[in-house]
Amino acid sequence: MSEKQLAEEIIPPNESQVIEDLTAQLKAKIIQDNPTGIMRRDAHPKMHGLVKAEFIVEADLPEELKIGLFKEPKTYQAWIRFSNASGTINPDHDNDIRGMAIKLMGVPGEKLLDAEKHAQTHDLLLISASRFVTKDVEEFDALVKALTGSVLAKIVFFLSHWRVVFNLLRSMHKFANPLQIRYFSATPYLLGSRAVKYSAIPHVAAPDSIPSKPAADYLRLAMVRQLQSGDAVFDFAVQLQTDPEAMPIEDPGVEWLETLSPFRKVATIRIFQQAFDTEAQNTFGEHLSFTPWHALPEHRPLGGVNRARRVVYNAISAFRHERNNVPRTEPNSWDI
């Protein structure tokens, strides 16, 4: 067997069938979860807030990082959606993974998705965990089957998938404020011909604490308070893959250790002081679609989980918008 190469993808022969099965499962799940009212996302349905931001690319980056979005110093307008990952809408004090979905606007160049090739947006999807819960799409498909199945199905799955249990326990936490969490892509992406993972690292002068008697939506309230008084700032950084074995492409359940390759800042995210918690902005955020495949080819998503996202996210988004009778469009400004 030949040695793995950097940024090399290895596609299992049954992957397309597994992705098809996963898509059908998730579509059935959201139909069951949303019998009335709007059709919500299969994951991250609870939004803490949609905010306006700037994504400011660093000047004087080294040549190996000056690719695609980071080719030259530039400031992009962005929408950022913060959310809980759970497929059901639960109180914020429940342990969960949190999401940070960034949509950059005014990004020139043809994008990867044929239907939105000429869209001027580029999405960056991050979560509060540095690793994905499963090793591949097949294991994730089995996890969804177990979670939507009987008690016995859950027991059998978790007893035979100890690393999934470990990753879930390690990833699901309580947090005080979505603007003060470090986020990770967990899955890899191209940076030209190299592979990288992303991270958004918050600047936190005085960290919030979880309220002693937290309201069901206290994470939204924490964001409202912070953005009433000032900006929220993150460093956006990339981590180059340097070892194809220790930093695998096809198993996002393995964390890429920073001792092997540190994260390097390429941009600043500035979420400026604002009032975001309005009915119009919340509705707008509900109908936005995010996918890692809203991207330039220089930043193509890598690995099986990302290949599944291309199919699943498109299918769920199209179905959701059709059921909600809302057109699916990409924004080009902060106007709503």
Results as ranks from 00 to 15, higher is better:
Gly68Met: 13
Val18Gln: 07
Phe55Cys: 09
Glu63Ala: 15
Leu22Lys: 06
Ala24Met: 07
Gly37Lys: 07
Asn14Gln: 08
Thr88Glu: 03
Pro35Leu: 12
Pro73Tyr: 14
Lys103Glu: 09
Gly68Gln: 12
Tyr76Thr: 12
Gly68Asp: 14
Ala78Asp: 07
Phe70Lys: 06
Pro91His: 00
Arg40Asp: 14
Thr36Ser: 15
Asp21Phe: 05
Asp92Pro: 06
Glu63Thr: 15
Leu65Gln: 07
Val18Trp: 01
Gly68Leu: 07
Gly49Glu: 11
Ala59Lys: 12
Glu64Pro: 09
Asn84Arg: 07
Ile56Cys: 06
Pro91Ala: 01
Leu26Arg: 14
Asn90Gly: 00
Thr75Asp: 01
Phe55Pro: 13
Pro13Phe: 07
Met39Ala: 14
Phe55Ile: 15
Glu63Met: 15
Asp21Met: 03
Leu22Tyr: 02
Asp60Val: 03
Gly87Ala: 03
Ser86Asp: 08
Ile38Phe: 09
Ile19Asp: 04
Gly99Phe: 08
Gly37Val: 04
Ile102Asn: 08
Asp33Met: 05
Ala28Glu: 10
Glu8Ser: 06
Glu15Phe: 11
Ile11Thr: 12
Ile19Val: 12
Asp94Lys: 01
Lys46Ser: 04
Glu20Asp: 10
Met47Phe: 14
His48Asp: 14
Ala43Gln: 10
Ala24Ile: 11
Gly37Met: 11
Asp92Ala: 01
Ala24Glu: 09
Ile19Met: 07
